[in-house]
Design a protein around this nucleic acid. Structure first.
Lengths: 208, 208
DNA sequence: TTAAAACATGTAAATATTGACATAGTGTAA
DNA sequence: TTACACTATGTCAATATTTACATGTTTTAA
């Protein structure tokens, strides 16, 4: 179903769609450049645009700030930072914590900021699969009387309730007043969205 | 946030968590076996358990049936089928369409069916990131007055409305009566879930 | 009748992502 | 004072996933 909607949307966005992809150059000497979409670089650009920070800080951000919507390990982040610096999108200053714990504080360059803005301004006509393992398992259960269903549902209620509690807590701490919302409106919107999504998920679970 | 909930859940599921992972055997002669989770094999097992089918049929199923929850291209499916057959989880019969269009109809073995049931019976204590590119872009927009927001929202409304229409259509055609629901209860549940999810997403979009 | 879409199966090359390995300094609480 | 959690940065190996390359048959609609 996803591909059908996608095909439909391609009509509207054909100038943007596939925009970033360069053809593979089989049988030629030069290295072929760029295959997949590399969204990670844009997310890093966006995070660094909020404030200069280290690879370690970015790793934590993927865990605590945007883990609902993208995940990345430090083993993916550090090489990406190196590559982005080579490409001139970011630079770093060396800094030290305590006596001698070295760290690299990265920030955007002009080129990086432009790349970020260009990405944000692009259409996003793709529906990505959710990859919810529980949902897939459920899909394969034929009978409403299957004895495994109650425990499976209960496990997910525990999981998603914990997640929802966590999101509520973040909302209360990160956005205590209107000023906080005005200062990071997009962040507020996606947290609100995540809360609504978990609330709906739980309501659906509890109904069954 | 995801990792925190995960850590919390690990207390409850520690016997299952990491269950499938075997340690890498650095510095030893034998090949190290198994790294990532390989959920694709289980999904293929589940699809083949519903009915015997070809790699081509499976590819379409990922597009039309479960594309909301997992995606896979034929270039990933055919090699996986080969591997699963080598592992004794599935077998195939050769068949022909028309005069000479060869195809391979795959079905589960006893071992494959057991593996499928074992997977379904396992806990699913992991929250996976949604990877919604639009949401990420929104996260990086600071101001509620940003001039790009209306067009971005409108684009997503179009996209998700098309998806929701498609899901409604599928619900009406696949589950016209209670008998159809009883015959594929899990399928019914996840379609219901997908519809609710898109409905909520649209309501949120339309509110902003 | 013929062109396009759909059926059908593969491989190759590249990038993406994960998990483990590896090392070292810092802050803190028992 | 010492162990543990956390800060901090990297690499390596394996698997996962995507995109393009490649080929041939069958069905369907203009």
């Amino acid at each position: 179903m996803v591909s059908e909607v996608k095909a439909q949307l391609e009509l509207f966005f054909k100038n943007w769609f596939n925009k970033d992809r360069k053809p593979r150059q089989t049988g030629q000497k030069g290295l072929s450049i760029i295959g997949q979409r590399n969204r990670l670089q844009y997310i890093i650009l966006g995070l660094l645009n909020q404030r200069s920070q280290t690879g370690y800080d970015l790793t934590k951000a993927f865990d605590h700030e945007i883990g609902e919507f993208w995940q990345a390990q430090h083993s993916q982040i550090y090489p990406m930072l190196k590559r982005m610096e080579t490409d001139g999108e970011i630079t770093h200053q060396d800094a030290v914590t305590g006596e001698k714990l070295a760290k690299k504080v990265y920030q955007l360059t002009h080129k990086g900021r432009q790349k970020l803005e260009a990405w944000i301004s692009e259409p996003s006509p793709e529906l990505t699969a959710t990859k919810d393992e529980f949902i897939l398992k459920l899909y394969f259960i034929r009978s409403a009387d299957d004895p495994r269903i109650p425990a499976m549902i209960h496990e997910q209620v525990t999981l998603h309730q914990a997640q929802l509690d966590h999101l509520h807590l973040r909302m209360a701490t990160v956005f205590p007043d209107q000023a906080a919302i005005d200062a990071a409106y997009g962040h507020y919107l996606i947290l609100e969205h995540a809360i609504e999504r978990e609330t709906q998920y739980l309501a659906w679970l509890n109904r069954h």
